[in-house]
Simulated assay, not measured.
Amino acid sequence: MAPRSFLQWPVVRQLTTGDLLGRGPSVTSARTKAIAPRTATADRVVQSVCPYCAVGCGQRVYVKDEKVIQIEGDPDSPISRGRLCPKGSASEQLVNSPGRQTKVLYRAPRSTEWQRLDLATAVEMIAERFIETRRRTWQQEDEHGRLLRRTMGIASLGGATLDNEENYLIKKLFTAAGAVQTENQARI
């Protein structure tokens, strides 16, 4: 590191530039002037909504080379006015985390090992079990002959990273299937 001259001292710069309170360029180092925000290199900015809770805070998603590089609060959002909670601020990790699962994993009953399945097989297994459970637990009427048309064998608990559109579709599906209990983790 090269020695600094007397004229580079922040106090001297404050006095010589007229920045007496030391809040302007006189206290900014050359290194700080050279730093650029990582959002400056983004190819595009996409407006989005935070996926965590039902508040709907606005987000700006910065994309470079088709990869999310930063997510910040959207100051144009009338809901959050550019602010995000700690979970919303860390939502970039939802896409870029090295631990993010991108393959379907299945663990058979009483098994200790996970196995990979292709998506079509997993969806077919879920659909078969859903239909069988609904058929087996269907209640058409109660003991007094009143119409019920429900199943108590199926319930839904949505996660905090589901957006409003996903929750809407889940609610419609489970209601149409006769499930009584449809809940979301964000409300609990």
Rank of each mutant, 00 (worst) to 15 (best):
L7I: 09
P10C: 01
P10W: 01
V11M: 03
V11A: 02
V12D: 00
L15C: 03
L15R: 05
G18C: 09
D19Q: 02
L20D: 03
G22P: 02
V27A: 01
S29G: 07
R31V: 14
K33L: 03
A34L: 08
T41M: 09
T41L: 08
P51G: 07
V55F: 04
G56D: 02
G58F: 00
R60Y: 05
D65W: 07
D65Q: 12
K67H: 15
I69R: 07
E72Q: 10
G73S: 09
P75L: 06
P75H: 04
S77W: 02
P78V: 11
P78M: 12
L84T: 04
G88W: 07
A90G: 15
L94G: 06
P98S: 12
P98I: 11
R100I: 14
S111Q: 00
S111E: 02
S111L: 01
E113M: 10
R116Q: 10
A122M: 09
V123F: 00
M125Y: 08
E128D: 06
R129I: 04
E132V: 06
Q140P: 05
L148H: 05
R150T: 14
G159F: 08
G159Y: 07
D163G: 09
N164Y: 07
E165F: 11
E166F: 09
E166N: 14
N167G: 14
F174V: 13
T175V: 14
Q181N: 15
E183T: 15
N184M: 14
N184C: 14
R187P: 09
